[in-house]
């Protein structure tokens, strides 16, 4: 291993830094460049607002580079689906072979940029409404490169604002002063700053107008029968929540006004099965649950212990209860 850097590499780095300036990051180990990283955007002149896709290119220089191909990874793709990424990877492989023996990073950037320019429209669905983006839709790109119909994002931000205000109102005033404003991206929870009033004025997603009505299929009905049979067996065995308990009525929410937790009214179709299973007596507690507890006040999970909203857990499908 040589401590000196191959001249071809140092020339390449110099050129990259001259062209990309702050947009390229070179990670070095013992002064030997190891990883070159840059975010590639489509070419849209200087109009950043028209860049709907991007990807981070990471080039790990192997010890024999450029006589041996570097390891190339694309990270954090935004607005690109797997097909496009796969195609870019295939082209990268070919380019690496073609350029063996000479610096290749700038060639890679160019190649990726061409691809991004070609597919500079978000692919996939709006995760809020699950409709695709189609001709005529008004959509917005957040600073974190996630896309939503403007209409959908407006609904999210308005709901978020309302929830936030309710939580702040519960805080003592000295903590209210410290509670930071927050509006987050539904996908990555990065902060978003958008003009809700402008978004709100956008029309709803085009596809939403032709929504087919919902109907129960035979398959669904069969599953319902199976489930109620299981429930009946569990009820018969005393395995259903609330049986033999004398706690408050179970949380069965049927209207938005009941959203805030705590005990609620039970409405016919929902609580029917339970009502039959759960006698409202003040009999003894179930085995395994010791003495009666004070009235349950409902989980207050809006803020962490320092009185700041958010950041209580990692969120996402895998997040546990924090």
């Amino acid at each position: 291993m040589s401590a000196t850097v191959d001249e071809r590499i140092s020339d390449e780095l110099e050129a990259l830094e001259a062209i990309l300036m702050n947009d390229v990051v070179v990670k070095k180990v013992n002064d030997v460049p190891e990883i070159i990283e840059t975010v590639v955007h489509p070419s849209t002149g200087d109009d950043v607002d028209q860049q709907f896709v991007c990807v981070t290119l990471e080039v790990r220089l192997t010890p024999g580079y450029p006589d041996i191909s570097p390891e190339v990874t694309l990270r954090n793709p935004r607005g690109l689906d797997d097909e496009v990424l796969k195609s870019i990877y295939t082209q990268i492989k070919r380019k690496l072979l073609d350029c063996l023996g000479q610096p290749v990073v700038f060639e890679l950037i160019e190649l990726i940029r061409e691809n991004l320019t070609e597919s500079n429209l978000p692919s996939g669905q709006c995760v809020i409404c699950l409709y695709n983006f189609v001709e005529g839709d008004v959509f917005i790109k957040t600073q974190c490169y996630h896309y939503f119909h403007s209409y959908c994002l407006a609904s999210h931000l308005i709901a978020g604002q309302k929830y936030y205000q309710e939580e702040v109102d519960k805080l003592p005033s000295w903590q209210q002063m410290q509670a930071p404003q927050y509006q987050t991206c539904p996908v990555c929870r990065c902060r978003v700053t958008c003009d809700v009033e402008v978004l709100k004025a956008a029309p709803p997603p085009v596809d939403s107008i032709t929504a087919p009505p919902f109907c129960l299929t035979a398959e669904l009905k069969a599953l319902q029968v199976k489930m109620s049979a299981l429930l009946a067996r569990q009820v018969a065995r005393g395995g259903v929540v609330g049986m033999g308990d004398n706690g408050p009525p179970p949380l069965t929410i049927t209207s938005p006004s009941d959203n805030d937790g705590g005990s609620t009214s039970q409405e016919a179709d929902k609580a029917e099965a339970l009502a039959s299973a759960r006698p409202h007596t003040s009999s003894e507690n179930a085995p395994g649950s010791p003495q009666a507890r004070p009235v349950y006040r409902g989980p207050y999970r809006g803020f962490n212990r320092r009185g700041k909203p958010g950041r209580r857990g990692r969120g996402g499908p895998a997040a546990g209860s924090r």
């Binding site: 929540v241 609330g242 803020f303 997040a319 546990g320």
Partner: peptide, 15 residues
Amino acid sequence: RLGRICLDILKDKWS
């Protein structure tokens, strides 16, 4: 005991 679940994404971490 009432089957209620303590999970952040059902509360403040909903998205």
